[in-house]
Design a protein around this nucleic acid. Structure first.
Lengths: 139, 139
DNA sequence: AGAAATTTGTCCGTATGTATC
DNA sequence: AGATACATACGGACAAATTTC
């Protein structure tokens, strides 16, 4: 049997109190809520109860919690969309061995080699290009 | 970005992404991984998280890290079967951008680029040559 | 050769997430 | 409910190795 609560559960009381502080401007948008341990001390509740209260606010989209940082008062719904788009495109083609490659592979200069070129872009900007050379008919 | 309820820690997600780039050849054996700060920017994660991701790859013997230098892709993960003697030698040099590279990096043809060439030999026989190109001292 | 910039190594502190007792 | 332990995550600071200018 759960602890008898008169009126409403403890976590809801705490949530309401915090919500009022936010709406009153006592904790302005963008500001950090007191830490869980601070709230634990202030309301003399267990950490679990405090977390439950914060979860209510989070569910109501009034705050966001960031791992390792704390819980912030929201200003507006978080923006969506890919923050950063990294993509690699690869193409294969045959090329003629330049003198250095020819020497390495022990073939005549001009011999056809397989080239795999990978272009990695971040937000459309080319960051690195790699060219891999192999003899034909090999793994 | 608010911390979602994870199914998987961030560092593992980052490690998986990097592993895939390695296996796809986008980051070939002997090549350098992006720097910690570059990865920090790309994945919007803290340096510690990025380092943890790299530690996963290092643990898996997929890469090696050198102080002040960077993290290199290893020639090959542990392999079964007959023991082959595989070695990769790497050299770096500045080269003039050919027309294709110039177009990719949006610079004039002939502009100096950093080229890193890795030659992988198996039992003395050249198996694959990779050349990776980057812009000089940028960012 | 030397100074500055890069890049990785290490340590500290704070805070949340999750699990267990 | 409470307490503890450990994992995950962020941030700052400084040191050490290397590269670049």
């Amino acid at each position: 049997m759960p602890t008898p609560h008169y009126g409403q559960p403890r976590y809801r009381t705490i949530a309401d109190e915090l919500r009022q502080r936010i709406e009153s401007g006592a904790i302005p948008p963008g500001a950090l809520l007191p830490t869980e341990s601070a709230l634990t001390a202030e309301f003399r509740a267990s950490r679990g109860t405090v977390r439950q209260a914060i979860a209510v606010l989070r569910e109501a989209d009034a705050v966001t919690t960031e791992h390792g940082r704390g819980t912030y008062v929201k200003t507006r719904p978080p923006e969506y969309g890919p923050v950063e788009d990294t993509a690699t495109e690869t193409q294969r083609r045959q090329i003629a061995a330049d003198p250095e490659l020819a020497a390495l592979f022990a073939v005549d200069a001009g011999t056809a080699l397989m080239e795999q070129q990978s272009v990695t872009r971040t937000d459309g900007v080319v960051g690195v290009v790699t060219r891999t050379y192999r003899l034909l008919h090999r793994r």
